[in-house]
Structures are given as structure tokens and as C-alpha cells.
Design a protein around this nucleic acid. Sequence first.
DNA 1: TTGTTAATTAACCGTTCGGTTAAATAGTGC
DNA 2: GCACTATTTAACCGAACGGTTAATTAACAA
Lengths: 122, 122
Amino acid sequence: MDHLSTTFSALSDPTRRAMLARLSKGETHVSELAKPFLKDMSLPAITKHLKVLESAGLITKTRDAQWRSCRINGTPLKEATDWIEQYRTFWEESLDRLGEYLKTIQAEKKTKGKKHGKKRNG
Amino acid sequence: MDHLSTTFSALSDPTRRAMLARLSKGETHVSELAKPFLKDMSLPAITKHLKVLESAGLITKTRDAQWRSCRINGTPLKEATDWIEQYRTFWEESLDRLGEYLKTIQAEKKTKGKKHGKKRNG
DNA sequence: TTGTTAATTAACCGTTCGGTTAAATAGTGC
DNA sequence: GCACTATTTAACCGAACGGTTAATTAACAA
């Protein structure tokens, strides 16, 4: 699988995004990182999620005695955001269109207001 | 599946990203959009990909006689990029670290330069 | 060396994914 | 109505996904 696909795929799971959210507040070892999720799933499940994040390059693990410390790595996120960025016009454009639309109905309201002798905001 | 997961999942396939790339150059109907992919897969496969993009809200389809015209919609991309944005520090931080590193080796070079009577840029 | 804790691996299971082929639906035009 | 084009749906298939439990590895500590 290509790099970008791996990144987006890794980000497409809420558990993994929650893990990144936790790691954004600081480095931790697996069992501490696991705590909030152990109500919902087993430790092996967590190991798997971490492996997905790691092979996407979104985290790195360092051995610290019997603990594995996890740290977030932003590089793939930058690549993802750079890819999305090329489509920026498509959400700014629609905001523009929304602006146009609002102007249009505003104009219509004014016209109707005049017709019906009703007026709003000048 | 939550909105963000659906979006990232839709973006995690290279065929679908290629389709968005094509659509970013303008609206087209399915069969024209399909052309570059028909070497690699069948039309039903393309229908499926388009359905994934559509249910993620990344495209909208409008009926035009017997053709379905596809148009890109940026809104989910904005949501995705907004989510990623909160991690910006994690790639800028590493660039900072790179900066620090460069300054360090620059300083070292200067020292060495003085030692060897070599100097660069003042 | 034996026990304890941390984490992973192995083997398995149901569901989803990305593809296929064949059939069905829908609109155009003679 | 019939043929043609555009597109989707149905049914199926193997591989990948997200989870499980049980067993294994690895480091520390008594």
C-alpha cells in the first residue's frame, strides 16, 4: 500500500485517533495508553492498533526496560494535510457560493419586501 | 461509522483519490470519469468507489438524462484537515528540532572553520 | 529460580472491502 | 415497441480488518 493510503487508513479508526489525541499530550508506555480503552477491548487489540499506527509512521516506540514508550510523529500528518490542501478551493469555493446565495436571497427579500410593502433591516 | 472515520476511510484508496483529482479539474459523468480506470477494473467496481465517495459526502451526483454527473464537494476535506491541524505542532516541532540541529552543526562548522582558518558567510 | 508485570504473537472468527460476472434498471431515439 | 447507451444492483469470492482467548517473550525483583 502507498504511503498516503496507509496514513489515511490508519486515521480512519476512532480508537487510533483517540490514541493519537492521548499521545499529543505526551509520551506514554503502552499499558498507560491502553487504560482508557480496556473497557472496550483487550490488550492484544490495542497492540494491533499501535502496530497500525507505527507502521504508518504516526508513532514511534522506544524500549524502556520492560515498557514500550510511544511518541507521536507528525510527518505523515503533514503529508496528509499537504495532499488535502490542494483541494482547499473546493471548500472555500462553496463558502463563496454560500456567500453568493445569501446575497441573492437577501436581494430577493428586499424585492419582495418592496412588493408587499414589507421591509427588513433597511 | 462516524463522519471523520468515513472521510479518512474514503481517502485511503488510491483509485478514489485519483477520482477526486480528476473531478478537481471539473465535473464529469461516470463513464468519462471511469475511462482511465477501465484498464484496471470493471465499471461496477467504479460504481462502488463512487458510492463510497458519495456516502462520505466527498462528491455529489446529479442526474442529467441517462448520465450521472459527478462533482467534488470539499466540506469533508475541510473537516479532515481541521482535525489534522490540531497536530500541526508535531511536524513543526520536528522541523524546529531540525532547525536546532542545523544551528548546532553550523556552530560546529564555524568552530572548525576557525580552527582550520576557514570561514563562510561572516 | 521463581514469580510478577509488560507487551506481543498465534490462532481463530465474523464482517467489511475491493474486485468479479451476469442481470436489471433507466433514459434516448428510431 | 425495440435497440442502444449509461449506470446500478445482485450474488459471489478471496483478502484484510478488528476483535477475541490462550500462549509466549522479555525484563525486573525477591
